[in-house]
Computed example of a mutant assay.
Amino acid sequence: MNGIWGLVGASITVIGVITTGFFTYRGTRTAAAIQAGPQEEAQQFAVLQATVARVDQENKELRGRQSRLEALVRACTWTMDRWARQMHQAGIEPEPPHPLVDEYNRTGV
C-alpha cells in the first residue's frame, strides 16, 4: 500500500511542477509584453515623428518648386504677350493661343 501512495504522491508532485512551470511561463510572457509595450510605442512614435519631418521637408521643397514654376509660367506668358503685340504692330497675325493658354490668360490659374 505504501508503494501506491508513493506513486500517487509522485504523480501529484509532477503535475504540480508542470502546472507551476506553465503559470510561471505565462506570467513571464505577460510581464515582458507589458514592459515592451511602452518601448514599442516609443519606437513607433519616433518613426512617426521622423516620417512627419521628412514629409514636411518634401512638402516645403515641392512648394518652392511649384512657386518657381508658377513664376516661370507668368514670365513666359508675359513674354509671349509682348511678342504677340510686336507681331500685331508689324501687321502679322499670330496663331491663336492654345485653349489652356487662353484660359490662363483669362483666369490666371
Rank of each mutant, 00 (worst) to 15 (best):
M1A: 14
G3L: 03
L7W: 02
A10P: 01
S11T: 12
S11I: 14
I15L: 12
G16T: 06
G16Q: 03
V17R: 08
I18P: 13
T20E: 08
F23V: 13
T24R: 09
Y25E: 15
G27R: 11
G27L: 11
T28W: 10
R29E: 13
T30L: 13
T30A: 15
A31L: 10
A32M: 09
A33R: 14
A36F: 07
G37V: 09
G37M: 13
G37A: 12
P38N: 12
E40C: 10
E40Q: 10
E41I: 02
E41S: 04
Q43W: 05
Q43F: 08
Q44E: 08
F45W: 10
A46E: 07
A46S: 11
L48F: 05
L48C: 00
Q49W: 06
Q49C: 05
A50K: 05
D56M: 03
Q57H: 03
N59K: 03
N59C: 02
N59H: 01
E61N: 03
R63W: 03
G64V: 04
G64F: 02
S67L: 02
S67F: 00
A71N: 13
A71H: 06
A71K: 04
L72S: 07
L72Q: 06
R74N: 12
A75R: 06
T79G: 04
W83T: 08
H88Q: 10
H88Y: 15
Q89F: 05
G91F: 00
G91H: 11
G91V: 14
I92Y: 06
I92D: 13
I92L: 05
P94W: 01
H98N: 06
H98W: 03
H98L: 02
V101P: 05
D102V: 01
E103T: 07
Y104V: 03
Y104C: 08
R106G: 00
G108L: 01
V109I: 08
